[in-house]
Computed example of a mutant assay.
Amino acid sequence: MSGYAEPERPQERLSDAEREEAVGHLMTAQAEGRLTTAELADRSASARAAVTRGDLAPLFADLPSAAPRPAAPTVSEPPLTWAPVPEPTAPMGRRSRALGGRVGDTIMALSPFIALLLFFGFGFWVPGGFTWSWLFFFLIPITGIIVYGGGAATERNR
């Protein structure tokens, strides 16, 4: 819509969005002190009841053009700079430090269950077995040392 006071095609019907836009311009005029609260209420009701663009013309005849005003100057900030992302040296995916790779990971994950089975197995089936079967739980850290222990030296040399 080029102007409310002098529309290009006064016979065209208005959409709901155009009616609300006209009411918004009336509210701006009231905020600027060009309309009183009573005038705003009357003109807003008329704008919402308008059918064609020509119906809006009398509402804006005594107001300045509703042309968009230039925006206030803004303080520009320096552009953000980003550091480049280094290229990965190793292939993407999961790398294991375990001796034997994923097999070593699997052995380490199963070691507590194996120790528990050995604890109960020897505890129930060997006479006096519970006295010494707790020693099987030492298999868990020993397995960890065997599987992961060698990886520390290779990590330092990289």
Score class of each variant (00 low, 15 high):
Ala115Asp: 01
Pro79Tyr: 08
Met92Pro: 08
Gly3Asp: 15
Val126Ser: 09
Ile114Pro: 02
Pro84Ile: 01
Val51Met: 03
Leu117Asn: 02
Arg43Glu: 10
Val147Met: 08
Tyr4Met: 07
Glu21Lys: 09
Ile146Val: 15
Phe113Glu: 05
Thr81Lys: 04
Trp125Val: 02
Tyr4Val: 12
Ala98Tyr: 02
Pro88Ser: 12
Arg13Ser: 12
Trp134Phe: 03
Gln11Val: 09
Pro58Phe: 01
Ile142His: 01
Pro64Val: 05
Gln11Lys: 13
Pro73Glu: 05
Gln30Thr: 09
Ala5Ile: 07
Ala5Phe: 07
Ser44Trp: 03
Ala49Leu: 05
Met108His: 14
Ser44Glu: 12
Leu80Ser: 14
Gly93Val: 02
Pro58Ser: 03
Ala47Gln: 03
Leu26Gln: 04
Phe130Arg: 03
Gly144Ala: 07
Ser2Tyr: 13
Arg94Cys: 09
Pro79Val: 07
Glu6Trp: 11
His25Asn: 15
Met92Glu: 10
Gly100Val: 06
Ala29Pro: 06
Arg43Asp: 04
Ser2Met: 15
Leu139Tyr: 08
Ala45Met: 14
Phe122Gln: 06
Ala17Ser: 15
Gly93Ser: 04
Leu116Tyr: 00
Leu40Glu: 10
Glu20Gln: 15
Leu40Ile: 12
Ala153Phe: 12
Thr37His: 06
Phe124Val: 03
Ala66Asp: 12
Phe122Leu: 09
Leu56Thr: 05
Arg94Pro: 04
Gly150Thr: 13
Ser76Cys: 07
Glu18Ala: 14
Pro112Met: 07
Glu21Leu: 13
Ser111Glu: 00
Ala90Trp: 00
Leu99Ile: 06
Pro68Val: 06
Pro7Asn: 11
Leu99Glu: 00
Arg48Gln: 08
Asp105Trp: 09
Ser65Glu: 10
Gly100Pro: 03
Thr143Met: 06
Trp125Glu: 05
Thr74Gly: 12
Leu80Gly: 04
Ser15Gly: 14
Met108Gly: 13
Leu116Ala: 09
Arg156His: 05
Ile107Cys: 05
Phe136Tyr: 06
Gly121Met: 02
Met1Glu: 14
Ala5Trp: 01
Ile146Gly: 04
Arg34Leu: 15
Ile140Gln: 02
Glu77Ala: 10
Arg43Trp: 04
Ser65Cys: 02
Leu110Phe: 12
Ala5Gln: 07
Gly129Lys: 00
Gly104Trp: 03
Met1Ile: 15
Pro68Ala: 13
Ala22Gly: 09
Pro58Glu: 09
Ala90Phe: 02
Asp55Gly: 09
His25Cys: 15
Val103Glu: 11
Leu40Cys: 13
Pro64Ser: 10
Leu135Tyr: 06
Arg95Ile: 08
Ser2Ile: 14
Phe119Arg: 02
Pro79Arg: 10
Glu8Pro: 11
Phe124Tyr: 10
Glu18Tyr: 01
Phe60Trp: 01
Ala49Gln: 09
Leu118Arg: 00
Gly24Ile: 13
Leu116Thr: 05
Pro127Glu: 08
Thr89Gln: 04
Ile145Pro: 01
Leu63Trp: 10
Thr52Met: 13
Met1Gln: 13
Phe124Cys: 00
Leu99Trp: 02
Pro78Ala: 14
Ile145Met: 11
Ala31Tyr: 11
Ile114Gln: 00
Phe120Lys: 07
Ile140Ser: 04
Tyr148Ser: 04
Ile107Glu: 04
Thr143Val: 13
